[in-house]
């Protein structure tokens, strides 16, 4: 029978009588990563630069589209104005005379 005097020399006593929850150390390491912002660093290092590139690209497309639309409107308006201007310069009687002259020739 084991006496209390030889407990210290017993190898069994050198084993710690404690346990930890299952997967504790893995979860702890992940938790620490979050607390020190390690995931944020990965985001900053890899994802964020690509998000900047994508944002710039989208910005260029939107600006291009806007510029194209505005330009189209101006061209159409200019054409309309020119047609009105030409028509305003024409005398209807002289046009009618022109048609009559050509038909009698």
């Amino acid at each position: 029978m084991k006496t209390n005097n030889n407990i210290l020399t017993d190898e069994m006593s050198k084993k710690l009588p404690f346990e930890v929850p299952e997967n504790y150390f893995n979860e702890f390491a992940h938790q620490m990563d979050k607390q020190i912002g390690y995931n944020k660093t990965i985001f900053q290092k890899i994802i964020r630069p690509w998000m900047y590139v994508a944002a710039i690209f989208v910005g260029i497309v939107i600006m291009g589209q806007l510029f194209y639309t505005v330009n189209q409107n101006i061209t159409a308006r200019n054409a309309q104005n020119y047609e009105s201007y030409v028509l305003s310069q024409v005398d209807e009687n002289s046009v009618a005379d022109l048609y009559v002259d050509e038909s009698t020739k």
């Binding site: 710690l16 346990e19 150390f25 390491a29 620490m32 020190i36 912002g37 390690y38 660093t41």
Partner: peptide, 30 residues
């Protein structure tokens, strides 16, 4: 500065168990 978080993450994974047991032996409760 740009490698710090990664290196610290490795340190946590390497030493967490030894440090945990060092603390646990004194404090006893998990």
């Amino acid at each position: 500065p740009n490698l710090r978080a990664n290196a610290f993450s490795v340190i946590v994974r390497t030493y967490q168990e030894r440090i945990y047991w060092h603390i646990r032996k004194m404090i006893l409760s998990h």
